[in-house]
């Protein structure tokens, strides 16, 4: 336990006028410090693979979508932002999304969809800016969400690195 010391003002501090000049000297010193503000639209914040931006859907190099519309991201979403309708496909994985919508106005960028996805299909990109003229335009459909997997590869490597756990012991459940 440490009792905080209540300061009693000295005569000069009580006079206030010398304090004003002391304050001004601090202000003057601050003028020559390094500027900490950023001119935002011109000077952007650095983004890297750690940045949790808006979720995007990874598309393989052969232009097929990774998503199998299992609905796990929909179930994991705490903001009810994702809507999926699945359909059959002739490809080996048998299913793909017919409709995949993320309401970007609801999305809170928590990353739970990415964590839940068993196919590495939905990933948090480094895209952060979100502005449009209507609410409807901000409900992103499949075409707006698709990104080549190469663009999302750094993020994919990063999340694989962090979920590399439980290697020492054998599987038990």
């Amino acid at each position: 336990m440490v009792i905080v010391k209540r300061k009693e003002l000295s005569f000069w501090e009580r006079l206030y006028l010398p304090e004003v000049f002391q304050g001004l000297s601090i202000t003057l010193r601050a003028m020559f410090r390094k500027n900490v503000t950023r001119q935002y639209p011109e000077q952007k914040l650095e983004v890297n693979e750690v940045t949790r931006g808006q979720p995007r859907l990874a598309v393989n190099a052969d232009d097929t979508i990774r998503c199998v519309s299992c609905g796990l991201c929909e179930a994991a979403c705490p903001a009810y932002a994702i809507t999926i309708d699945g359909q059959e496909t002739d490809r080996f994985i048998e299913r793909e999304p017919e409709r995949f919508e993320i309401d970007m106005l609801r999305c809170i960028l928590c990353g739970f969809c990415e964590e839940a996805c068993p196919k590495d299909a939905i990933l948090m990109s480094d895209e952060l800016e979100l502005a449009d003229f209507s609410r409807e335009a901000l409900v992103y459909d499949l075409e707006k969400l698709k990104r080549p997997v190469s663009a999302l590869q750094p993020r994919l490597d990063y999340i694989y690195k962090l979920s590399n756990r439980w290697n020492s012991s054998s599987s038990s459940s």
Binding site: A75, I159, Y160, S163, S171
Partner: peptide
């Protein structure tokens, strides 16, 4: 390391059926 409440590692979800079931169950 508690498979009842914590998501399995991604590496194993890709290769093991049991881990995939855990993933679905936990989410």
């Amino acid at each position: 390391e508690d498979r009842r409440y914590i998501l399995p590692p991604r590496q194993k979800v890709q290769s093991s059926m049991e881990e995939l079931i855990h993933q679905f169950k936990i989410v």
